[in-house]
Amino acid sequence: MKPTSLLLPLLLACCPTEACEGLVIERAWIREAPPGARVMAGYAELRNDGASTLVVDAVESSGYFDHVMIHETLLEEGRARMVPRDTLEIPPGATLSLAPGGLHLMLMQPVSDLALGAEVPLTLRCGEAVTETRFPVSAAAP
């Protein structure tokens, strides 16, 4: 076995992962949903204070939702369409807004009902780097 093939798993296991470089998450919230809701939506403002374009390629939730998708609501001739997005790209210095009626995190199958005020940790993944933030459950944008 080549020594390099051992290196990557070792690296991943031993060391704390790096944060997404320059990613600042503000005004994060999850819209409260009626009891029994199977899908919820998460919103936030994602700012890139770094020097290069940030690409968020996955969002994860351990213990709160089955899985998380990135979606965009598009309004065309009065019709709302949901379009899955693979990534969120944020150029240096830019802020990407995830807001009602537009881009949002689609939080699938909550493990249990989330009460108003609950704080849900979500992990945004940028390649190997990850940034975790708490999303409070709220009736309206903060």
Binding site: R31, V39, P100, H104, L107
Partner: peptide, 13 residues
């Protein structure tokens, strides 16, 4: 519909 996370709760609110 109730499995609609964005537009429907936003509109009902």
């Amino acid at each position: 519909f109730t499995h609609c996370p964005d537009v429907c709760p936003t509109t009902l609110a």
